[in-house]
Write a protein that binds this DNA or RNA. Structure first.
Lengths: 182, 182
DNA sequence: CTGAAACTTGAGCAAAGATTCCAATTCTGA
DNA sequence: TCAGAATTGGAATCTTTGCTCAAGTTTCAG
């Protein structure tokens, strides 16, 4: 059961393929055949390293959810601007994972699959973190509500940027953050 | 070729089934079998009324895109609050179509399918309409940028509400609209 | 070196999916 | 009422999908 080096490498190759496919074609484009072709392997190899398609996809989904909220240590000291900048950085520097993240978020909200719970929990944590940062810099009583609007705007802007990369994501995000911070 | 009444009725039944399935399960849950089961018909009947699965789906997608922006006549006289209220109303009163709309928007932006162009055009029109309304009530020079943030926030809030219907969509939307209108 | 465990291949299978065909039935205008 | 077109059911077909299997190759601890 202990993996050899070769196995770990193709495992990464597979996850990369899944990420790319999930990002550009969504669930329906992500077939075993396509995954294997993109990873340059054969079906049998895939099933030697993963229990099934779903497991591989969930691994990538976890990557995506994990990547959106780095430095959980900082919790309690960050500002709205920092949190916003971190999100903008994640989206623009890792567009593939970002696309997966957005897809999951939307899919979770709509389909209610079993990742819906996971995503909802993640989202709540995120709202809390933003709300705490807002409350710290601004004495408004409705910090949570402001955080909800702020996150909604950020997510919406992310979708827009992924749709049309000419969008000034960073600038618009700052504009939104400025509204809340004051 | 001229349709009889019976045909038109089952056609509607099919579109309703597609809308429901698309809304709750996304593209991957929307199979011919599921459509026919939900519509209470047989496969042959489906292919008598539609050229294929894709055509039926596109019909529903068009419905969704069309429903989001009613009263194109009013163009030029509406306020940000009115546009916002109309959107909130659409999302909350037709959640099925709304889910389809959101899914298409996200899918289009990410997958770049051939509906991507259609959706992008629709989105630009929407931004313009909001920008015009903003410019009318507010002398800011960056009406378009504000419209982009506003729409992003609305879409993000819609996703959030579809994910968790306890969200105070209407209240938060008004809060966002207020920021822009002043 | 060596052998057991890990890795890879590629054919093959069962189930599910989309689509076609056609005989049987139902409409509708004249 | 009648003929022709529209509609319908349901079996048949062809493709795709997710997955298994057996046989051969590579890796690496002892």
């Amino acid at each position: 059961m202990a993996r050899y080096r070769a196995g770990l490498e193709t495992r990464d190759r597979i996850l990369g393929a899944v990420r790319t496919l999930l990002s550009s074609n969504g669930l329906e484009g992500t077939t075993i055949k396509a995954i294997c072709a993109a990873a340059g392997i054969q079906a049998g190899s895939f099933y030697n390293l993963f229990e099934g398609k779903e497991q591989a996809i969930l691994a990538v989904v976890r990557q995506a959810i994990g990547a959106v909220d780095p430095d959980p240590d900082h919790h309690g000291t960050d500002t709205v601007e920092e949190l916003t900048a971190a999100y903008v950085d994640f989206i623009t520097s890792q567009p593939d994972l970002a696309r997966v993240y957005i897809r999951i978020g939307v899919g979770a909200g709509l389909g209610g699959g079993h990742s819906g719970e996971t995503f909802l929990a993640h989202h709540r944590r995120r709202v809390e973190r933003f709300a705490a940062a807002i409350a710290r810099g601004n004495k408004a009583a409705d910090a949570t509500r402001q955080a909800e609007v702020m996150l909604a705007a950020l997510n919406g802007l992310a979708v827009q940027w992924l749709l049309d990369s000419d969008t000034d994501f960073e600038g618009l995000a700052k504009l939104a953050a400025g509204r809340v911070a004051s």
